[in-house]
Write a protein that binds this DNA or RNA. Structure first.
Length: 375
DNA sequence: ATCATTTTGTAGGAGTAACC
DNA sequence: GGTTACTCCTACAAAATGAT
């Protein structure tokens, strides 16, 4: 789905990201925050906290507890605000600003006692009241600095190539794969609750992506798909990526069939009823399963009365679509199964799933069309 | 005074790990 | 499996400022 050039950029990003990991600068894909913690800890000679330590990111030799916040800025807007930090748990807030190459531009120091009950505000109007360390005075060793810069270049090239549109690279790439594979439109508003993409047929999709590969980054084997509660999309699409961000599996699951949306294990693709596979699995723990064909066929599977949970969704979509489509058009479109994913429902159909049904339907419709044309 | 632009504030989203 | 801890980003709304 990506061009060769784009794949090279992704490979390069994976390499540069692993290099930062090897140098102990990052340990996850939340790279902005981790680079910031690294820079502040080095500058103030802090002992870096373990990853899940509440409020404190580093402690100085004298016991001063630092919380670090990081921000990449494109213009000189040195702003920061936080509503409710646990200000009693740390002594000093250090906000570090980076340019797009992750060169530190400034560190702003705010004593936690200066917060208004946990509310911190740095704006152009208030910044002069805080201690500031200029970028030229921030010391980072040359090796780390060049690794960070190279990482930034690799990241920026992904953005410039249109591969990603945010610093949440894993989710971004997953959405890209899912949308191009299923011909979906990404939600323009990235904040739209519960829906990442739509199809022309009216169906809605939530896309969850996980990068699944052997690495020292993860201690736990368990992978989760969190926070699917209340998601109103018709389908969940699960995308697995390999180390180089190549698609290593994709599945489509009726959202209603998820039994534990609060904290679903990634292995729901193996166990959830109605799951169909879009891209075969390259991950041993995730089974490929029955393959997804098109939305046409998918709809016929869904209208099977055996699984009543699908019926309400199917009915709604069917109504919308049939209103728009004259009957003759339906026949001609249904023949061309591959290029269009437009849903043409037959709600009375009790056909089950499977390839032979597909071909039966296609042949019948072909015969109907030939008959129609010869008249 | 009104409209346009810039800046700040907020809500909602992403991913992962630890603890129970 | 559920919850809560950590992380940052983005788009939009609202407010502030500038231009006519």
């Amino acid at each position: 789905m990506f061009t060769k050039q784009q794949e090279l950029l992704l490979d390069n990003f994976a390499d540069k990201s692993d290099h930062l990991f090897a140098l102990g600068i990052i340990s996850t894909d939340s790279f902005t925050g981790e680079i910031g913690e690294y820079v502040v800890c080095k500058h103030f000679n802090l002992k870096k906290s373990n990853r899940v330590t509440q409020a404190v990111d580093g402690v100085s030799t004298t016991g001063e507890r630092f919380q670090v916040k990081s921000k990449v800025i494109s213009k000189s807007y040195f702003s920061f605000n936080a509503k409710s930090l646990e200000h009693s748990l740390f002594d000093t807030l250090a906000v570090v600003y980076f340019d797009r190459l992750y060169n530190p531009l400034k560190i702003v120091i705010v004593p936690s006692c200066k917060s208004n009950n946990g509310e911190f505000k740095i704006t152009s109007a208030t910044i002069s009241t805080f201690e500031q360390i200029d970028g030229t005075d921030i010391k980072i060793n040359a090796k780390a600095k060049s690794a960070i810069n190279e990482f930034a270049v690799a990241y920026n090239s992904l953005e410039e190539a249109g591969i990603i549109r945010s610093r949440r690279i894993v989710g971004d790439i997953g959405e890209f794969y899912a949308c191009s594979k299923l011909n979906l439109k990404q939600s323009e508003n990235r904040n739209e609750k519960g829906i990442d993409a739509r199809h022309d047929n009216g169906l809605t999709f939530e896309i969850k992506t996980r990068r699944v590969y052997e690495s020292g980054r993860r201690i736990s084997e368990t992978r989760r798909l969190n926070n699917l509660v209340g998601k109103t999309a018709d389908y969940l699409i699960v995308v697995a990526l390999d180390r180089s961000f190549k698609c290593a599996g994709m599945w489509i699951i009726p959202m209603q069939n998820l039994t534990n949306p609060k904290s679903a294990n990634l292995k729901v693709v193996n166990t959830t009823e109605g799951t169909l596979n879009i891209v075969p699995s390259k991950i041993p723990s995730l089974q490929t399963g029955e393959s997804f064909k098109t939305f046409n066929l998918r709809k016929r599977v869904l209208t099977n009365p055996v699984n009543s949970t699908f019926i309400t969704k199917t009915t709604r979509t069917k109504k919308e679509t049939t209103k728009r489509r004259p009957k003759r058009a339906i026949i001609s479109e249904e023949i061309s199964i591959e290029p269009t994913h437009t849903f043409i429902g037959n709600n009375d159909s009790s056909l089950g799933s499977g390839g032979c049904f597909t071909w039966t339907i296609v042949i019948i419709l072909l015969l109907l069309l030939i008959g129609y044309l010869s008249n």
